[in-house]
């Protein structure tokens, strides 16, 4: 009985579901475009007054005189993010290797919930902790070995706090990635007489390289945008940091600190919108670049 209309209702529901879901997908993609466009239009008035290049490369930030240079903020963002990844990544990779390849199941049972708790602590708590512990440690113990004076409120403090914040995220992603590697692959290596460490080095890490890159991408995107905790320990001085012990002023901190104040100044809100747009574009470029790297890796090793 292939003729007739008795399946009409089911078929209708199927196509309806498909259309609704398609609509929602398009809507959520549109959101990103809308955010980007509105940032662009809001910041267009400053882009008419100044050239984009002078805004990006200018180092002086004097809103009262109408001077808007974003270079220190961009550098502050990059410094803090780079330091945090530099600290967090080796720690996270080694931790998750230990947890997934070596640790006894009992240890896993204790540590996994701890990592989740760490991920659940609000950023402002990390910020306070940074002020109480990291900042004095840098100004009293660490910095005197390298520079004459540091208040401790520095890009290094921001990087350390940020590293601790993104670590739970990276660790839990990496553990998932290592768990997804088939046991047979490890057995193959072990059965040839490889030690656990050799197996990890030559097989597990290699096989999970795309996953590790993806984890870094997520962590970096998170680090770029993190605001409160970084703002509390970074010093917030609009100068390009010359060493890790200098203060910095990342873009998110700039926006959060100033938006809503002094909005009567000409071009000021437009400048802050441009800061948001720059952050948006940095993250966009970074994601695109990592996608290219990822496909390169996958093609190179045929993973």
């Amino acid at each position: 009985m292939i003729f007739g209309t008795h399946t009409k209702y089911r078929v209708f529901k199927d196509s309806l579901a498909r259309r609704i879901m398609l609509g929602l997908t398009v809507f959520s993609l549109l959101l990103a475009v809308i955010v980007g466009l509105s940032l662009y239009f809001k910041s267009s008035s400053i882009l008419h007054e100044h050239s984009l290049w002078s805004l990006l490369s200018g180092s002086s930030w004097r809103p009262f005189k109408g001077e808007f240079g974003f270079y220190p903020f961009i550098m502050g963002t990059l410094w803090v993010t780079a330091i945090s990844i530099f600290i967090a990544l080796p720690l996270c990779i080694l931790t998750s290797i230990f947890l997934s390849e070596y640790a006894h199941p009992y240890i896993k049972k204790i540590v996994f919930p701890l990592i989740d708790i760490l991920a659940g602590i609000p950023p402002v708590v990390y910020g306070v902790w940074g002020i109480l512990v990291v900042v004095p440690f840098i100004s009293e113990k660490l910095a005197p070995h390298f520079v004459e004076f540091s208040s401790g409120y520095s890009v290094l403090a921001g990087g350390i706090v940020l590293a601790i914040m993104i670590m739970p995220l990276i660790i839990s992603i990496l553990i998932e990635i290592f768990a997804a590697i088939p046991k047979e692959l490890r057995d193959a290596s072990l059965s040839l007489g490889a030690t656990n460490w050799q197996t990890v080095k030559f097989v597990v890490l290699r096989k999970s390289l795309p996953g590790i890159v993806a984890a870094i991408v997520l962590a970096v995107s998170r680090a770029f945008g993190e605001t409160i905790a970084v703002l509390m320990v970074c010093g917030n001085m609009s100068a390009v940091p010359k060493s890790v012990f200098d203060s910095g002023y990342p873009l998110p901190a700039l926006i959060a600190n100033n938006y809503g104040e002094m909005m009567s100044l000409p071009l000021y809100d437009s400048a802050l919108m441009l800061a948001a747009l720059i952050l948006f574009v940095i993250i966009l470029i970074f994601n695109a670049a990592s996608r290219i790297i990822l496909t390169r890796i996958e093609r190179r090793f045929a993973l």
Binding site: P182, E184, G193, F202
Partner: peptide, 20 residues
Amino acid sequence: IINIRKKMGLLSQRPCPLPM
């Protein structure tokens, strides 16, 4: 344990080439 494993080659059910 390494010497034991060196004495025996293992062929698993599904072939498992290393990622190289």
